[in-house]
Design a protein around this nucleic acid. Structure first.
Length: 817
RNA sequence: GCGAGAGUGGCGGAACUGGUAGACGCGCCAGAUUUAGGAUCUGGUAUGCUUUGCGUGUGGGGGUUCGAGUCCCCCCUCUCGCACCA
């Protein structure tokens, strides 16, 4: 019978499902492996990126299971979020129905690919039994003082009267009605992730198995910087203004101060300023500028406020400006400007004709020109800096911090670019934030026993008039847990990044109703040994999830500091050199491909085309090639059943000739495939070496019983090694020919050693001959062999061999003069 | 601009610690089989030349070394990330 994947694949899929073939339990007697892939958003259809991501994880899971590991390999759904809510606005269907339909469709697509998930552990983040633990964690954080409320601006559509997500406000207009989007400030909930900034940064050093680029991106994202806060007294009002600087050593060169246009002090300054009108105009102008406009231009724009500040070190009066390049989000939203030593300040000073005073000598003997062309940003030795003149920048930083601290006008400090995590969303399809507002008691957390706070069903999805939750009377009105009086529920829901920050712990006990997960199970299964997903999550998700692990550890639930031992980011699947997208019309549908080539061939191609971290270009011809390979393997069995079933009655040590080299190749392949999967995850070369083995097997004509017996053994082991890649076909072949494909072949390195090698003879580094030689010969023997070659000998006549370099079992290089 | 990574046949890629560059596959060419096509099988496939051989060749230039795709320096190109972070 020809290889018929259409019949074979569904049959095995059904069998795996019925047998719960991939169900796992905690088992202290076995070594565990937690293999995790990023859970998908249930969009309804899987795409090639999913196929690739999950195929990689499936190979590792199956391989390690075959090697005796107790492998946890779960799957679930990142099921909350905006798309379902948008669909509800369009169709009127409840997001829940929509989402569960999608999950069902995608689950069956995953099953069509033959992935080895323990479906009994499936989770969906929209299930109240899941998100109640988001709420539980929120309450714990509240208890620990890690939650606070603050104002933050959101995109607001004045016509729909609703908050818009960034992607709904692209281009500055509302996605539904095209009105111009405004910024509106709302009270929102924040998590103090910055309390963990230091640990999140330092922890990166303990993750040797994470890609360097991901760690670098996280370091930049966290953005630690050491510097100083310094307060500048305002002239004329009893107020001071705090700046952050990393270069307090240059403070004697500070000739002005700049504020972010939205700095809170601006309101007070304008009251007393003679420049009030100009200030208002400038602020309005800045507010009109969109994010893109700001990003596009590096032109320095500023406005004098008419007010002055006192430099606490020089006691000189310097002007205060508003400047477009000062960001309210970072530091204090105010900077001291030292144009001689900071390029931005320099450009600003040039434009507004402000004095430029150098106070750092970068190198001994350095002379400043009368007019600078650019700022001198290097550190060096201080000059014209009062008592600090003559000391180094580094020393000055320490001493000036001390002086500032003693004088009560400053201190050394560390700031981060990482900001506290705003988790409020004015949306329906998310986890309700478990808080109640009472007129008498204020903000009251929902008691643990009342969890989960479920999303209401009596809501209307119009896309107008704020969050749909506001339309639910039953949800809105409640009683205060403290005083029992009338109260109102919080209507904000959580950012869905909360859901995905800890889901892999819930897989351990998806139905536990007394805790998010069992502490002992966590001690056994965690950390995740291998996590595979897209690089696009290098910062947000992968920082949040590290943060949650540290939180849960501090709540006493975990004993680990980091959630993931080895992280792998896989590259995109592209088509015609471009990202697959609906608008380009180049989307390849996995279902179509499975139908055409079978799941096994699709998997093999996806893994064979490229190493995981690289981009991969989908090509039908590539999948055809993979199918051809599988076909050849199948047909070998079909055409040679007596070989495949041949008994393994030979002594490996006594093999000779073809039988011996085939057996060597087999063991070389076992070694190679194992290493490629385990150490480097280079599944492409693993598959290549299986192809090589098959090529040798099919060209080694079975002449004689011993060769036949070895060929049979080689074929069976080859099928076993194919199981992680093409599980349906491998299982089918195992069943047809009656051998077990659930155990990985045993490697014997001794058998992998060849008897002969090709001795490469070089003269002065150029290859002059290649000679068959016995493994293990010494340099003299190699030299003798080489000189016995006519070609080498002719090159040597009349010349002296100055040096012989022999690399055992590889190469002999003769240096000749 | 800053940071990270990558440049190897017609294409995807291999070469793991400096030691035979191009494994494996795709495509292409030739042959076998076939009425034909498809499928399958066999062989070939970096490049130049005066082709039993010799030379050149891993983005370009230099260097270290007996020996460099691999290490070092300079330059070019591309991809990704960050982007006025004081």
């Amino acid at each position: 019978m020809a290889y018929n994947f259409t019949e074979i694949e569904p049959r095995w899929q059904k069998r795996w499902e019925n047998e719960k073939a991939y169900k796992v339990k905690r088992d202290a007697s076995r070594k565990k492996f937690y293999c995790l892939e990023m859970l998908p958003y249930p969009s309804g259809r899987i795409h090639m990126g999913h196929v690739r991501n999950y195929s990689i994880g499936d190979v590792v899971s199956r391989y390690l299971s075959m090697n005796g590991y107790n492998v946890m390999h779960p799957m679930g759904w990142d099921a909350m979020g905006l798309p379902a809510e948008n669909a509800a606005i369009k169709s009127g269907r409840h997001p829940r129905e929509h989402t569960y339909d999608h999950m069902k469709m995608m689950r069956s697509q995953f099953q069509n690919l033959g992935f080895s998930y323990d479906w009994d552990r499936e989770i969906a983040s929209c299930d109240p039994e899941y998100y109640r633990w988001n709420q539980w964690i929120f309450l714990k954080m509240m208890e620990k003082g890690l939650i606070y409320r603050s104002r933050r601006s959101v995109n607001w559509c004045p016509s729909c009267q609703t908050v818009l997500a960034n992607e709904q406000a692209e281009g500055g207009t509302c996605w539904r009605c095209d009105s111009e989007v405004e910024l509106k400030e709302l009270e929102q909930w924040f998590v103090r992730i910055t309390d963990y900034a230091e640990e999140l940064l330092d922890g990166l050093d303990n993750l040797p198995q994470w890609p360097e680029n991901v760690k670098t991106m996280q370091r930049h994202w966290i953005g630690r910087s050491e510097g100083s806060f310094v307060a500048f007294q305002l002239d004329g009002i009893d107020k001071s203004l705090e700046v952050f600087t990393t270069r307090i050593d240059t403070i004697f060169g500070a000739t002005f101060v700049c504020l972010a246009p939205n700095h809170p002090l601006v309101k007070e300054i304008r009251e007393i300023s003679p420049e009030r009108k100009a200030i208002d105009e400038f602020v309005a102008r800045m507010n009109r500028m969109s994010r893109e406009e700001r990003r596009a231009s590096t032109e320095k724009l500023g406005q004098f406020t008419g007010i002055y500040a006192m430099n606490p070190f020089t006691n000189k009066r310097i002007p205060i400006y508003l400047a477009n390049f000062v960001l309210m989000e970072y530091g204090t939203g105010a900077v001291m400007s030292v144009p001689a030593h900071d390029q931005r300040d320099f450009e600003f000073a040039k434009k507004y004709h402000l004095p430029i005073v150098p106070v750092i000598v970068p190198k001994p003997g350095f002379q400043y020109e009368s007019e600078l062309n650019e700022a001198v940003e290097a550190i060096g030795v201080l000059a014209d800096s009062g008592v600090f003149s003559g000391i180094s920048s580094e020393k000055a930083k320490t001493e000036m911090n001390e002086v500032a601290e003693a004088g009560g006008f400053g201190r050394g400090a560390i700031t981060y670019k990482l900001k506290d995590w705003g988790i409020s969303r004015q949306r329906y399809w998310g986890t309700p934030i478990p808080v109640i507002y009472c007129d008498r008691c204020g903000i009251v957390p929902v008691p643990e026993k009342d969890l989960p706070v479920k999303l209401p069903d009596d809501v209307v999805f119009t896309g107008k008039g704020g969050s749909p939750i506001l339309t639910s009377e039953s949800f809105l009105h409640t009683s205060c847990p403290k005083c029992g009086g009338d109260a109102r529920r919080e209507t904000d829901t959580m950012d869905t990044f909360v859901d995905s920050s800890w889901y892999y712990y819930r897989y351990l006990n998806p139905h536990l109703d007394t805790a998010p997960f069992d502490v002992d199970d966590a001690a056994y299964w965690t950390p995740v040994d291998l996590y595979i997903g897209g690089v696009e999550h290098a910062t947000m998700h992968l920082i949040y999830t590290r943060f949650f692990t540290k939180l849960l550890r501090d709540f006493g639930l975990l004993k680990i500091d980091e959630p993931v031992k080895k992280m792998v980011t896989q590259g995109m699947v592209i088509k015609d050199g471009r990202k697959m997208s609906k608008s380009l019309g180049n989307v390849v549908d996995p279902d179509d491909m499975i139908q055409k080539y079978g799941a096994d061939a699709v998997r093999v191609f996806m893994l064979f085309a490229s190493p995981p971290e690289k981009e991969i270009e989908w090509k039908d011809q590539g999948a055809e090639g993979a199918l051809r390979f599988l076909n050849r393997v199948w047909n070998f069995g079909e055409n040679n059943p007596e070989i495949v079933k041949a008994k393994q009655d030979f002594e490996p040590g006594k093999l000779t000739g073809k039988a011996k080299s085939l057996f060597q190749k087999l063991h070389q392949t076992i070694a190679k495939v194992g290493e490629d999967i385990e150490k480097r995850l280079h599944l492409n070369t693993a598959i290549a070496s299986l192809m090589e083995l098959h090529n040798l097997l099919s060209t080694t004509l079975p002449d004689g019983e011993t060769v036949q017996a070895v060929a049979g053994a080689a074929y069976r082991d080859m099928i076993r090694m194919l199981t992680p890649f093409a599980p349906h076909m491998a299982c089918e072949l195992g069943e047809i020919y009656g051998f077990d494909v659930s155990v990985w072949p045993v490697l014997n390195r001794e058998f992998a050693l060849a008897d002969n090698f090709t001795l490469v003879v070089q003269i002065n580094g150029k290859i002059r001959d290649k000679i068959e030689a016995e493994v293990g010969i010494d340099a003299d023997a190699a030299f003798e062999l080489a000189t016995a070659s006519e070609r080498v000998a002719s090159e040597l006549t009349g010349k002296n061999v100055v040096k012989k370099i022999y690399i055992p079992d590889r190469l002999l290089n003769l240096v000749v003069r």
